[in-house]
């Protein structure tokens, strides 16, 4: 066979890569979807920060006691958590040496879930008033 090929045998057998309707597309799409929602939730996060900068705990409790603020804040957590999880996956996959890749991909998911649960639970507790 005279022609050189850059395709692996496995690639030919499977026919589809990650990019064609596979996890690559899903990752790309979810990253953009949450990038759009992040525009809105980060705007709310900035509003939260400006409202509560230097505020005593009483004001913080009152702020999160409002249903709109509590709902928006939980959306901040969900939207950014998904985006973070997808985003960190990329440098881990690209820069981590072989043996560390999978452990750090696991760690990435664990970290994000812990942050998200802490965030949502804290907001709920403040909303419900203990």
């Amino acid at each position: 066979m005279p022609t050189t090929t850059y395709r692996t045998e496995l690639k030919k057998v499977r026919g589809l890569g990650s990019a064609i309707g596979g996890p690559g597309t899903d990752h790309f799409w979810a990253q953009r979807l949450t990038a759009v929602s992040n525009l809105f939730v980060v705007a709310f996060l900035v509003y939260t920060g400006l409202t509560l900068a230097g505020a005593p705990l009483g004001e913080v409790k009152a702020f999160f006691g409002h249903p709109f603020n509590a709902i928006a804040s939980i959306l901040v957590v969900i939207s950014t958590a998904i985006h973070m999880r997808l985003g960190m996956q990329v440098p881990v996959e690209e820069y981590m040496p072989h043996g560390l890749k999978v452990p750090f991909l696991f760690l990435n998911t664990f970290f994000v879930i812990v942050i998200a649960v802490v965030g949502v639970l804290s907001i709920l507790k403040l909303f419900l008033g203990n």
Partner: peptide, 17 residues
């Protein structure tokens, strides 16, 4: 940076709760 910055926000909201 934002990924790890989320820790600050999580600690802050958890402390308030």
């Amino acid at each position: 940076t934002n990924y790890f910055g989320s820790l600050i926000l999580a600690i802050w909201i958890a402390s308030a709760a």
